[in-house]
Amino acid sequence: MTDLNPRKLLLNAYVYAVLFFILAPIVVILPMAFSETDYLTFPPEGFTFDWFGAFFGNSRWMKATTFSLQIAVLTAITTCVIATMSTYALMRGAGRLGALFQGLLIAPIVVPHIALAVALYLFFRQTGLSSTITGYVLAHSVIAMPFAVFTIAAALSSVDATLEDAAMSCGASRFAAFRLVTLPIILPNVLSGGLFAFILSFDEPVISFFLAGIRDKTLPRMMFDDIEQNLTPIIPAIAVLLTGISIFVLVAAALLRRMADSRRTVSPEA
């Protein structure tokens, strides 16, 4: 309506400026991956896929990638399961500690990751979880939990609670009612939460920095080391791959949520 409103124009300009400053470095770094030089340069000189080859051909990089993938997949699964259970308990349960529990689940969004990292470092060193897959998965799940909880809560709030009563009156046990009725309806959001968790875990640097041992390093941790030591275009090459994966996963998550919305179009009154 008020497209010519100067305040709105100014706001739009501001938003685009912010986006530009955030995205410009990415736009700059990505082409560097194809440079024929063995140092970083912009604009890139020549064009080659050699640095991708170097990445895939190097066993240390591959080991770190596999390690990160393992952690990310396990984090995604753990987060899905725990977030679904917690959100269900929060929204359908009658517990008196609901508010406290919700606070605990969501706190990792507020607490700086560095503080969490230090705390986990001290705790894991005592319990022998440092630089183990279990340690990483636990730490990353804690970080990913709020995002998954929000995604699942959005779905669960639109599912009529009497659906499970109806299922039980049809002879389903309480768990069967959840598994056959509620879960299928919210499943796209659960999976979307899992994908978020995967991405968060896969390129999480701060906690990995503290938990990493000498041998088992995650991909972001390896990248740090490489930046400090040689800084070749292998780094932008990995950045290209990570960006691609992130975009793919986030688009998948968005599609899943859209699918979920269309599944839940039956409002009880309509």
Binding site: D160, L163, A172, P268
Partner: peptide
């Protein structure tokens, strides 16, 4: 679930999926 009762709810409560 063990009562073998048929029940009809106010808002139908059909399984939307």
């Amino acid at each position: 679930q063990k009562r073998n009762i048929g029940m009809v709810f106010q808002h139908y409560s059909l399984f939307p999926h």
